[in-house]
Computed example of a mutant assay.
Amino acid sequence: MQLVVARIGRAHGIKGEVTVEVRTDEPELRLGPGAVLATEPAGTGPLTIETGRVHSGRLLLRFEGVRDRTAAEALRNTLLIAEVDPEELPEDPEEFYDHQLMDLDVVLADGTEIGRITEITHLPSQDLFIVERPDGSEVMIPFVEEIVAEIDLEEQRAVITPPPGLIDESEAVVASTRDEDAAEGDAAGDGKRGDE
């Protein structure tokens, strides 16, 4: 089974290093020197990690054959994909691989159905479940202990205890208005992406 373990960001320096957005809880295992990773787009790889180091809280990698800033910049936004045994589980029983969580039913403690996990977004501060509701709308659920009370892989469900407003319809309207305002700001040149 293939798992996305990182996304390549901008070039760092002039000797071929790149920043990476880590998408695995085991970077030392998946992103260590010598690791050979498939890529998306596929034509970019496979890539073999030559060196890795942490600089100002970010992981920097250098790949074999990538020796200058131009070559490193050409890799920007490439996804790094590791081959993982589908039976393999994280060492910590409180951790899960994305493929284990995809398509889980999301329910409240009383059994009320909220929807189904269709995507997992990895942010620097926390992970988010993107949950598709029965009406086709989406809601974002932070994957934090205070909200996600239980992951039951046997029953294929995630039990949540959301704070008021997290999954209310009125909150969804406010969020979509904010998105529209942000889009208008971006179109006018006011917005600035916090990405690479």
Score class of each variant (00 low, 15 high):
residue 59 L to M: 13
residue 78 T to V: 15
residue 68 D to P: 08
residue 16 G to Q: 05
residue 89 L to Q: 08
residue 74 A to R: 10
residue 67 R to E: 13
residue 78 T to P: 08
residue 44 T to Y: 11
residue 61 L to N: 08
residue 19 T to W: 07
residue 88 E to Q: 11
residue 84 V to W: 01
residue 90 P to C: 02
residue 50 E to V: 10
residue 75 L to F: 15
residue 34 G to M: 13
residue 61 L to P: 03
residue 53 R to T: 02
residue 70 T to P: 08
residue 43 G to W: 13
residue 49 I to R: 06
residue 22 V to G: 00
residue 59 L to C: 05
residue 46 P to Y: 06
residue 35 A to R: 10
residue 51 T to Q: 15
residue 87 E to R: 10
residue 82 A to L: 04
residue 84 V to M: 04
residue 88 E to K: 02
residue 73 E to A: 14
residue 73 E to I: 12
residue 25 D to Y: 00
residue 93 P to D: 03
residue 67 R to C: 03
residue 28 E to S: 03
residue 45 G to Q: 09
residue 31 L to I: 01
residue 72 A to F: 14
residue 81 I to R: 02
residue 42 A to F: 11
residue 33 P to S: 07
residue 15 K to E: 15
residue 38 A to R: 12
residue 34 G to N: 14
residue 45 G to H: 11
residue 72 A to E: 07
residue 73 E to P: 12
residue 30 R to T: 04
residue 55 H to R: 15
residue 31 L to E: 00
residue 86 P to T: 08
residue 75 L to S: 11
residue 49 I to V: 15
residue 74 A to V: 11
residue 29 L to S: 01
residue 54 V to L: 10
residue 85 D to S: 03
residue 45 G to P: 07
residue 48 T to P: 09
residue 39 T to M: 08
residue 43 G to L: 13
residue 30 R to E: 04
residue 34 G to P: 10
residue 62 R to K: 15
residue 22 V to P: 01
residue 76 R to C: 09
residue 24 T to D: 01
residue 63 F to L: 10
residue 80 L to V: 14
residue 41 P to V: 03
residue 46 P to D: 09
residue 43 G to C: 12
residue 34 G to A: 14
residue 54 V to Q: 10
residue 33 P to Q: 09
residue 41 P to A: 07
residue 83 E to I: 09
residue 28 E to I: 00
residue 47 L to T: 09
residue 86 P to Y: 05
residue 90 P to V: 03
residue 50 E to M: 08
residue 30 R to C: 05
residue 71 A to P: 10
residue 30 R to A: 03
residue 18 V to R: 12
residue 27 P to H: 06
residue 62 R to T: 14
residue 38 A to W: 10
residue 76 R to E: 10
residue 37 L to A: 00
residue 92 D to K: 01
residue 29 L to A: 03
residue 41 P to G: 08
residue 41 P to F: 05
residue 19 T to K: 05
residue 64 E to I: 15
residue 27 P to T: 05
residue 80 L to P: 08
residue 51 T to G: 07
residue 79 L to W: 09
residue 89 L to G: 00
residue 59 L to A: 08
residue 34 G to S: 13
residue 57 G to Y: 10
residue 44 T to Q: 13
residue 25 D to Q: 01
residue 72 A to P: 10
residue 15 K to F: 14
residue 24 T to C: 01
residue 91 E to Y: 01
residue 24 T to I: 06
residue 66 V to G: 04
residue 49 I to G: 03
residue 76 R to V: 14
residue 56 S to F: 13
residue 88 E to L: 08
residue 19 T to F: 09
residue 51 T to L: 12
residue 88 E to P: 03
residue 32 G to D: 04
residue 24 T to Y: 02
residue 18 V to T: 12
residue 54 V to H: 05
residue 82 A to F: 05
residue 52 G to Q: 11
residue 81 I to V: 12
residue 47 L to R: 04
residue 69 R to M: 14
residue 82 A to T: 03
residue 77 N to M: 12
residue 93 P to S: 07
residue 17 E to A: 12
residue 28 E to H: 04
residue 23 R to V: 02
residue 79 L to P: 06
residue 52 G to D: 08
residue 86 P to D: 03
residue 83 E to H: 09
residue 73 E to C: 04
residue 68 D to T: 08
residue 45 G to R: 11
residue 92 D to E: 13
residue 28 E to L: 04
residue 50 E to T: 12
residue 43 G to S: 13
residue 32 G to T: 09
residue 28 E to M: 08
residue 84 V to Q: 00
residue 37 L to I: 02
residue 27 P to W: 01
residue 25 D to R: 00
residue 71 A to C: 11
